[in-house]
Design a protein around this nucleic acid. Sequence first.
RNA 1: GAACCGGUAGCUCAGCCGGUAGAGCAUUCGACUUUUAAUCGAAUGGUCGUGGGUUCGAGUCCCACCCGGUUCACCA
Length: 541
Amino acid sequence: MSDTLPNTASRPSDASDLPKAWPFEEARKVASHVAERGGDAPALLETGYGPSGLPHIGTFGEVARTTWVRLAYEKLTGRKTRLLAFSDDMDALRKVPGNVPNQEMLAQHLGLPLSRIPDPFGRFESFSAHNNAMLCEFLDRFGFEYEFASATDYYTSGRFDDALRRMLEVHDEVVATIVPTLGAERRATYSPVLPIHPRTGQVMQVPVLGVNPDEATVQWKDPEDGTLYETSVLGGHAKMQWKADWAMRWYALGVDYEMSGKDLIDSVKLSSKICRILGKAPPAGLTYELFLDQNAQKISKSKGNGLSIEEWLHYAPPESLAQYMFNQPTRAKRLFFDVIPRAMDEYLANVDKAGATPDETVLRANPAWFIHGGAIDPALSSPVSFTALLNLASVANAESSETLWKFLRRYDPTLSPETHPYVDRLVGHALVYFKEFVRPAKTFRAPSDAERVALQDLADALRQADPSLSPVEVQDIVFEIGKKHQIQPLRAWFGCLYEVLLGQTEGPRFGIFASLFGLPETVALIEGALARDAIPADRQT
RNA sequence: GAACCGGUAGCUCAGCCGGUAGAGCAUUCGACUUUUAAUCGAAUGGUCGUGGGUUCGAGUCCCACCCGGUUCACCA
């Protein structure tokens, strides 16, 4: 049986001593798959790529998650693993992607394998070589360990030949398995074998008229001119249609584990059946949920909703993204900016917890342990939460890390950029997040006429003040101005400062703020607020 | 038509192998303040979607249903 979906597989009964983390559950599946297939070969884990697109945040998620399964498996069994990053670059270009140059050139090459189409960017020998390079660069950037594999290389070098012969032997059974899943139109022409046209190089989607397993050839007719061809399926003269391709690859390479998104559930089922027909058990795997955007809509690469990996890393270090990916892979999660601070703080909390855990089993259930590849690096942590830094940036109206650091050192004198470089990175990210998300949402109220006069007075006083004044002395100045202008109650004067200058109802003591923020900068802040609200008086809310 | 994932405090969610519900934020009160950031203490707040079943006992397991979301039925 066992077209059961991977993540509905029955719970192991002897899992009590396993670390309570999903990668270990997955590792068990890998272990039983390896045991079943036998042999000494390392466990083979695969991640697959459609070659027409560039790597994205989902790519990161899939590779990161697979890497954690690897780690769990190695710790669990003491055996080795390989991760194969497989690019299906022999796939045909079916439509021209909208986000690349040289659209006309690409349009002329529709139907050819991507590895036979010139690079529209003009940098590599083919379109797929370009995309493959982007993929590898992407994976390298995060330090993933993997072996890259190109479908074109595998096909043309003959590495798939035995499996392709086998595919022809069971051709009819494979067809009989796939055809019922297809719509009426597709049924008529379907073949799991796509011959490469010997003259044009096109990947042909044509009915296969005859199969010759002994010669490893298929017969087909050119739909254009009616020419009959008999084409070898070996050595790159044909490729498999993708569901058959996936199964053939599993079979040929002996893949033990591959996860995939829930959009591929039916494909996994079908490819698993084909893999069994070929004669091997399909790999174990996990079906992960897709990400949703802000409004719980599907993330679409073409629509550009959701969040790109560059955007995420603009606001927080990669560990936070890894933490997000670690959490609940089988649940649909919103992927939007506002999840970043939480993910970051979760990660930081996990590093702390890991440091305090003597129990190895507990440690191995900790996401930070996985994120750090099985060895916690205490340098990648912070005693201050990201949320705290954001609050601080907000109340301090911080423009620069220098300013934020001044406030931060007041908060905790033992911190400095030199001794805590990771905190310094977080400071930089917090500033960006504050400037781009928090501050734009703030509403600055306009001052009343009386407040306006007092604010101007304060600006003048601060401008003339000795820059070496202590925060307390600056506070005295602020206080005196408030009293002088008889703002009642006096606390309303400070409320006015926060609301007009900082766009919030609360804040630090203003003297401390002004000192750390800088007296000239504070003067500029006040005058900016006065100028901003000079004309419209109806914005008061 | 088929499949997947959710439905737990106002919000976002955690609840591992079943044992009388937890966190963060929000709200309220208090401490500290020549003021109201960060900080600390406390309180309020849930018939765990509905109905059955198994059990001494179910948010937790089983079945059915309701609601919400998504995906696949062309390509990959």
